Simulated scan of single mutants.
Amino acid sequence: MMQKKNRAFLKWAGGKYSLVEHIQARLPQANKLIEPFVGAGSVFLNTQYKRYLLNDINPDLINLYNFLKAQPDAIINDAREFFSGSRNNENTYYALREEFNATEDEYYRAILFLYLNRHGYNGLCRYSLQGRFNVPFGRYKKPYFPEEEMFFFSEKSQKATFTCLPFEKVFTRARKGNVIYCDPPYAPISKTAAFTSYAARSFGQDSQEKLAELATRASKKRGIPVLISNHDLPFTRALYQGADFSMLSVKRSISQNGAKRQPADEILAYFPPAKVPLKKKRKRSAPNNTLGHVPLIKVAN
């Protein structure tokens, strides 16, 4: 039985909080969990591994996580001030969004990223092609300040290393004894449903195919198990051929109108580790004797 579920401190489109039990049930034991697409970190927060390698292509997210890991008291105290009622209005939101896009101060940027996440429309994280955060004001009555969740995240992150790398590079860091969990941007249900502007770079069909290829190679050639979650589509089933599938029905949508949220089927594809034979140590051959086996001849004095 799972302990109390821990919520992420960020709002996140496609977050895995509601699926944590199913994902946890499919994840094998390992000495380290590697997440190439950590997002808000619900799986990290609700699993018990000795160590974690948590990656995301979004530098603002990883910047905030690193500050929260290193100096939780400072960042929580400074961020709290931005959750006063005086800052929950349209003019202030757009002024602070502009400051966020202009500043190079990483600490201030981390605080503003949290503010924008909780005050912006539906907790979306979206950037223009120029890399500017462009989510509109959310019009919430009183945005929640996630103090408790931030302290828990900080405490747990002492077991984690955060990186901001392309997912391909994260796979090269995996070793036998680790497990990889991938929560990539969803394969679109339709061509108009693509939601890939989460970071300034998009995650298209080529990226989906590359991820499937890396998962297959990691499990078959290197003996590292991989679990991937995605939409349950003919495309993803063909992509993850050879994996063990489990299906889930989830209530999830980008729509703010709860009544319009249709359950979307989700698939968990598990690539079990192949038994990779241990490399046999080669017997060291005797050093070459340049004299060959010519017997020594005693020379009479």
Rank of each mutant, 00 (worst) to 15 (best):
K141Y: 06
Y140W: 13
N91Y: 11
P136I: 08
L112R: 03
G120Q: 05
Y94F: 15
S128D: 05
R132Q: 14
A102T: 04
H119F: 15
G131V: 10
L96H: 07
I111G: 01
G123A: 14
Q130M: 03
N88H: 04
L124E: 11
L114E: 00
Y107T: 07
P143N: 15
R126W: 00
K141H: 02
L114Y: 00
L124D: 06
R126P: 04
R126Y: 05
E104M: 05
K141P: 04
Y127D: 01
Y144E: 09
E104K: 11
Y107M: 01
N117Y: 07
L96S: 00
L124F: 14
I111T: 01
Y144T: 08
I111R: 14
E104H: 12
A102F: 05
F145Y: 14
V135A: 06
P136N: 03
E90Y: 02
E147M: 12
E99W: 00
R109Q: 00
P136S: 03
L129T: 15
F145I: 13
P136D: 12
C125Q: 08
F100M: 06
E99G: 10
P136L: 05
N134H: 09
Y108Q: 11
A110Q: 08
N89Y: 02
Y107W: 01
P146L: 11
H119S: 13
Y94E: 12
A102K: 08
L96K: 10
L112Q: 06
N91Q: 13
R139C: 09
R139M: 12
N122R: 08
G123M: 14
N122L: 05
E149F: 13
Y144W: 15
E99N: 07
L116F: 08
L112K: 08
N134Y: 08
L116Y: 07
T92E: 14
G131H: 10
Q130I: 02
E147F: 09
T103V: 02
G120W: 08
L112D: 04
S128L: 10
E106C: 07
K141N: 00
M150S: 12
L112N: 00
E104T: 05
F100V: 09
N89W: 03
R109K: 13
R139V: 04
Y140C: 06
P146I: 10
E99V: 13
Y94W: 12
R132D: 13
N122D: 00
F113Q: 02
R97C: 02
Y94S: 04
A110T: 10
Y140F: 15
M150W: 12
H119D: 06
Y93V: 12
C125M: 11
N122C: 09
N88R: 01
K142E: 09
Y121W: 15
H119Y: 13
F100A: 08
F133C: 02
F137R: 02
P143W: 13
R126N: 03
Y144L: 13
E149Y: 14
E90I: 09
R87V: 12
E90D: 05
E147A: 15
L96A: 00
Y121G: 12
L129W: 06
L124G: 06
Y127F: 15
L112V: 04
E90G: 02
E104A: 00
K141S: 10
V135W: 09
K142N: 11
E148M: 12
Q130N: 04
L124A: 01
E99T: 14
N117R: 04
K142D: 03
R118G: 14
E147K: 15
Y140G: 07
R139Q: 12
G131K: 12
R126F: 04
K142I: 01
V135T: 07
T92L: 10
Y107E: 03
E148Q: 15
A95S: 15
Q130V: 05
R97E: 04
E98G: 03
